[in-house]
Design a protein around this nucleic acid. Structure first.
Length: 275
DNA sequence: ACAGGATCCTGGGGGC
DNA sequence: TGCCCCCAGGATCCTG
């Protein structure tokens, strides 16, 4: 569920609450996440202080003093929050990291598509992302490389934006919002795109993600930030979830189609499929 | 090799 | 109220 702006918001919330704190205890639930939690990770973490909290694509990286890294993915419904220890622990909480004050880091995930993995060090972390061939951050997209990736595929633009090996962090909401911003049709075959259009799309992605980060991401149903606060960007969607409503730029109703297995929203007039 | 579909899981909402 | 179907911020494995 959470895409780059949501994950970035969580990381910014968690950083001041976690950096410098030590892990006093770890408790894991019984139900498996997407990747199993290994029992020996508890011992490797207890007593460790948190050095840094970072984001890469949709991944949250928690580095501890031994240089091991705890890597989280939130899947569709994952939540990673710091709460006071005396606050009620909600259902579907799969991991709890007690800290050396009165707070704890909690990983909650209704659908259990998320994961938490402990990696051995800096190189292991690098290998982890290389193995999944995670693409560059949107702000680091090299224009020539981006054009080449678009030119090399017969998939539609929507499918390419969702591909984490092309650009990291974009998901269903921000793919639709970025294509609207760039005035490009989601069905458009990526290889037919012009140089100017490729540039427009690359900039649109960054623009849209920055706007969403400013609003602390989008809360449609499950998402909350690292301190439990909801986001506000859902109020600014221009096409996502607005099927049948007026396009914000013209009087045409927003349409919805299914692409790459995902709901896709666009304005058929502002986003024409020229080839 | 590539693109699209099925799959993992739970819960909410609409129709009957 | 109950039941059944569809839907959901994602990634991976399988198939044609």
């Amino acid at each position: 569920m959470p895409e780059l702006p949501e994950v970035e918001t969580i990381v910014r919330d968690l950083r001041p609450a976690l950096v410098g704190r030590c892990i006093a205890a770890v408790r894991a639930g019984r139900k498996p996440l997407r990747k199993p939690w290994s029992a020996r990770w508890r011992t490797l973490l207890v007593g460790q202080c948190v050095h840094a909290v970072r984001r890469r694509g949709k991944w949250i990286i928690l580095e501890v003093e031994s240089e091991r890294a705890l890597v989280f993915h939130l899947g569709m419904t994952g939540r990673l929050t710091v709460s006071a220890r005396n606050e009620r622990v909600p259902a579907h909480t799969h991991l709890v990291f007690k800290l050396d004050n009165d707070s704890e880091l909690r990983f909650n995930d209704i659908r259990r598509f998320g994961s938490a993995t402990l990696l051995d060090g800096v190189e292991a972390l690098q290998r982890f992302f290389e193995k999944s061939r995670l693409g560059p951050e949107p702000t680091d997209l090299d224009p020539a490389w981006w054009r080449q990736r678009l030119a090399a595929t017969q998939r539609c633009l929507k499918a390419v934006l969702l591909d984490q090996t092309v650009v990291a962090g974009v998901g269903n909401i921000y793919a639709d919002e970025s294509l609207f911003e760039a005035r490009l049709h989601p069905v458009r075959i990526a290889s037919t795109i012009t140089r100017a259009e490729a540039g427009r799309l690359r900039k649109a992605i960054v623009t849209v993600l920055d706007r969403a980060i400013d609003k602390r991401g989008s809360s449609i149903r499950n998402y909350v930030g690292g301190s439990g606060l909801k986001g506000n960007y859902q109020n600014e969607f221009r096409v996502y979830g607005r099927t049948g409503e007026c396009c914000p730029r013209c009087p045409t109703p927003i349409e919805r189609v299914r692409l790459a297995g995902r709901s896709t929203h666009f304005c058929p007039r502002c986003q024409q499929n020229h080839v």
